[in-house]
Write a protein that binds this DNA or RNA. Sequence first.
DNA 1: CAACAAGCTGCGGGTTTACGCAAGACGGAG
DNA 2: CTCCGTCTTGCGTAAACCCGCAGCTTGTTG
Lengths: 241, 241
Amino acid sequence: MMKVLIVEDDPLHRSYLHEAVNAALPECDTVIEAENGTVGEKLARDHKSAHIVMDLQMASRNGIEAARTIWKERPETRILFWSNYSDEAYVRGVSRIVPDGAAYGYVLKSASDERLKLALRSIFIESQCVIDREVRGLQQKSLGQTNGFTDSEYEILVDIALGLTDRAIARRRGLSLRSVQNRLQQLYDKLDVYQSAGDDHEDGRFNLRARAVTVAFLRKLLNYSALERAEAELQEWLEGK
Amino acid sequence: MMKVLIVEDDPLHRSYLHEAVNAALPECDTVIEAENGTVGEKLARDHKSAHIVMDLQMASRNGIEAARTIWKERPETRILFWSNYSDEAYVRGVSRIVPDGAAYGYVLKSASDERLKLALRSIFIESQCVIDREVRGLQQKSLGQTNGFTDSEYEILVDIALGLTDRAIARRRGLSLRSVQNRLQQLYDKLDVYQSAGDDHEDGRFNLRARAVTVAFLRKLLNYSALERAEAELQEWLEGK
DNA sequence: CAACAAGCTGCGGGTTTACGCAAGACGGAG
DNA sequence: CTCCGTCTTGCGTAAACCCGCAGCTTGTTG
């Protein structure tokens, strides 16, 4: 006897998931559906669901936000994230909110039926973590600093993406002005903002700060949902003086 | 006797479209499918298709790019854009590439079956333009300057989003440095970058340039695909000295 | 403990931005 | 033709940004 909650805003994908759950989990007797994050949170609370399949990238409230509040209330909830993309921004976002020892999964929508069903069983029955191969790669790269970004660099990146000044960042992160600028330089380095800047002549130069943000976007280090979340956090911080 | 080409990367949506086309257009005897923009372009060329349903936002080559090259080769092609979102960036992108007098449509994926079928018939049979109500609103707002952005403002926005310096923009657009900065100020005005900057104390100020880009992103004036296109154009311009 | 890498911080200066002020240029309304 | 609004441009200034140099604090390793 098991209950599964599906949070996904595309009706086609939702019904596909519904079928997949039925096929993969005969022991599941109830499937409920939510068409966005807000409803998802509410249903999770009402039904005390312990098994959730969650889309990232929904209009009303994205999957990461929803998962965060759900996990905050009930950290043992098992969540399978089912996403179109493997942007580093998503991967980072998810791995930042997963509670210690929680079982979760990250499967791409492009995965085969078979893989999806396997993941469903592994996570919901066996309480194992299942991370899509492709996603795994990113995770490795971003945690091991080889060619990846440390948390502090990522933090700085987000801050300039939000449009904060050096001074504001310094205040927010409790650093001196110079330290902030140091981190910026590291960031510029890693993002290769210089090469594209210099080219050959010192002709068409870039504004490093703005360019860094763009490059990060193009490399999927940032995306809309990450920005949205960061902006919300920023507003929160601004309230708290 | 009619041929329809479907360009869409999500298999679920693709087969849904296939069915919808069959149901709405009995006079259509052949339906071909492409799973990304690159393949789409090729098939369109090979089959000389005059009727296309096109997703925006695909991994390999996005719908706007594909549509552009297709229309360049055969401007009388009828294209129905079928998209998840109505970002201003998409709407603007589409309306920039549609040839004079061409029949095209823009329908959201959230539209009902009925509306999709109606749009298919209107465009492919009657050669009429069909624009989703919601999208229409944006279009109006963005062309009429009320509360919207002029082309020159939008141009500047893209340029700073790309990370160009004032000087570089001036060269690229054939303006003086000061003119560029004027336009920037207009832009900052319209994007309301000041209010959020000043707040109450002149304490936590924003970097206007970076902030403008973020705000534009959050308001869907820009999105990944627009950035991608702009970046490609920029590189092209850099080549041409 | 000594040695060393990594990160924080202040100082100083060259460059880029943001923007007020004001003088032309252009185009439509009266 | 004249008046007026919009757009462009130059000049000048205060602020913000980019960054090399150098002194300090840490945590790590032999």
